[in-house]
Design a protein around this nucleic acid. Structure first.
Lengths: 338, 338
DNA sequence: ACGCTTTAGTAAAGCGGTTTCGTAACCGGA
DNA sequence: TCCGGTTACGAAACCGCTTTACTAAAGCGT
């Protein structure tokens, strides 16, 4: 493998000259430049990035930490992130922590290693302070999608509250009053905010929220399935379900299907995320769409700004959008009880 | 940021000693070791990986090149790959080329850069020789899922032919004779092999394959949708469709739904891949399951063997499996014509 | 013909580790 | 008491590139 010395020797100049020439820090007479070019071609020289990085202290690489790259939400976000990074000449280190705290920590350590210049962090397990401590006031970290309380780095979220509010209103406007809510694990920003949006809309409409209509605790479809079955067994079952994540909506669909309840004829269902698979369900899922692609791109751009010494806003909220498909209809059993 | 020199100074020893101590190449008396440990803790020292790598020439990192990380198949594979790599102390550089030849090439160049020790390559656009050239006889590349003809590196595929054969037989055994086939783009190994498996099973059953029942050209659902609509408009439409990829099956489902044709009552459908979303379709999709997880893990292990100087088999085939769900039934219109 | 400015380059010191070779000090045995 | 072998550690070269500081030679105006 040829080094810059080999090239220099072959071209009859010093390594310094070659280096400066390659980095456009010097203008050379055509004859010299030609000899260098020829030597590079002849020796098939590629600069050793490791050496370059060690020397310059910049890696031109950034990290993207996701809880689970298998999940479409993160996969989609990662894809957009990488595309944007590529556009700006950065390579990206993706990692999928499988929600394992140790792996999350290991990802953060790469910053220390000088492995990467900065990173975008996503986690979906509530932090006990460990991550917050590690991140602190670093000038090269951006947090996306889910909060890590107590850090002072730029954060990029979606309008969770407003989205949930919109979704709930959509159900209310369709005539529903007995609305059930499926939520995720406690302690997460998205979960709390979406729940607030739900409560707000119910409040505004003067509808009391019945505790037996609310199930929280996890994003696992299985739990949503079980919760849905329970809803159906209630003396007065809900006429609509708001699943605050499409993963929960999947569980709900499973539960409803098992019980032979049809959507939207017997019960209405609305999701949150608008993942591609939502459109494939029967009926296609009405949902709040998160701007996943934008979350990825903007996440990178925010990080880039940080790396360039700029001061991006500490908090950005991306708007969400209601996508109406066919899983919401009017309630069939009129509800005189509410 | 503390360096090994700082630690050495603080502990009153030389950098050499610290380095060797940290790499377990020396046994130190407890007192000295204690001083070094203390210095490390006090200074919060982290070895600079870049420097270490430059020095040792090993990066302990591998690359995983996928056409599109957004697609569940690759996301799933990537997740398993990373998990296995992590288990062996390797970090992984994932990249998503979006089927762009330039990005595929750029990924391969990382090998030159000494960015990574080796990589697993996946592509789904037929190679014109460019990639094959770049890969050649390298001792640190493994090809997975789809072939790049003309290279002599280890390759890891699934039993495409057998899978397609099994799928087709499954339809035939259910009583179908008018079977349509949806295939991907020409020039790809998986496409060719699956088609062969289909033809073989038809042949064995003594059923002639009608050209108007065969549509090839892309993995895009949209094309499968259009092709399916055409099938239905035929004077004698097929009673079953074999979609040689779940992405094609999605398209087929869309086309059938639009036409108001019900599965499996009016027409049967079988897929290939067995992606998670298949189970969510109505009815749940019967499909050939690819061992995606194993593809990822074994892909890494094969690469690891290569890096360790071993000689893994040049060709490995992973078995596939028929997953029976509810999208295949008996043909309704009896077929007397075949 | 001389001094001054460009032009065209170079030597050498890092970047932060690893590694080869070597040595001083100590210890036990003859 | 002297020798050979451990034990405990260090000096310096090296990995391949960048960069600062510097110089020799050519060009140029007067």
């Amino acid at each position: 493998m040829a080094t810059i010395h080999d090239v220099a020797q072959d071209a009859g100049v010093s390594p310094t000259t070659v280096s400066r020439y390659l980095n456009n820090r010097i203008e050379l007479p055509p004859s010299t430049a030609g000899r260098i070019d020829a030597a590079i071609a002849k020796l098939d020289y590629r600069p050793n990035l490791l050496a370059k990085r060690l020397s310059t202290g910049k890696t031109e690489a950034v990290g993207l930490v996701t809880p689970e790259i298998r999940e479409p939400f993160f996969a989609e976000l990662a894809s957009a992130f990488e595309d944007e990074a590529d556009r700006h000449g950065y390579t990206v280190f993706m990692s999928s922590t499988r929600s394992d705290r140790d792996r999350e920590i290991a990802s953060l350590e790469r910053l220390h290693d000088r492995h990467i210049d900065g990173l975008v962090m996503m986690t979906n397990t509530p932090d006990d302070g460990t991550l917050a401590n590690l991140i602190g006031k670093r000038k090269n970290v951006v947090i996306v999608d889910e909060d890590i309380p107590g850090v002072s780095v730029p954060r990029l979220f979606v309008e969770n509250t407003e989205g949930a509010h919109t979704a709930t209103r959509h159900l209310i406007e369709a005539g529903h009053r007995r609305i059930a809510y499926l939520g995720g694990p406690h302690g997460l920003l998205t979960v709390t905010e979406r729940r607030e949006g739900f409560l707000l809309a119910m409040n505004e409409a003067g509808i009391a929220v019945r505790p037996e209509y609310v199930a929280m605790g996890s994003f696992a479809p299985e739990l949503a399935r079980a919760a849905t079955r329970k809803f159906l067994e209630l003396p007065l079952p809900p006429t609509a379900i708001f699943a605050s994540s499409d993963y929960l909506a999947i569980g709900a669909v499973m539960g409803l299907k098992e019980a032979g309840v049809s959507v939207p004829d017997d019960i209405s269902l609305i999701g949150f995320d608008d993942m591609p698979f939502g459109a494939l369900l029967t009926p296609p899922l009405t949902a709040i769409r998160q701007p996943v692609e934008q979350l990825g791109r903007q996440g990178f751009l925010t990080l880039l700004a940080l790396l360039n010494g700029e001061a991006p806003p500490l908090l950005t909220r991306l708007p969400v959008e209601l996508i109406v498909r066919q899983s919401v209809g009017a309630p069939t059993q009129k509800d005189f009880t509410a």
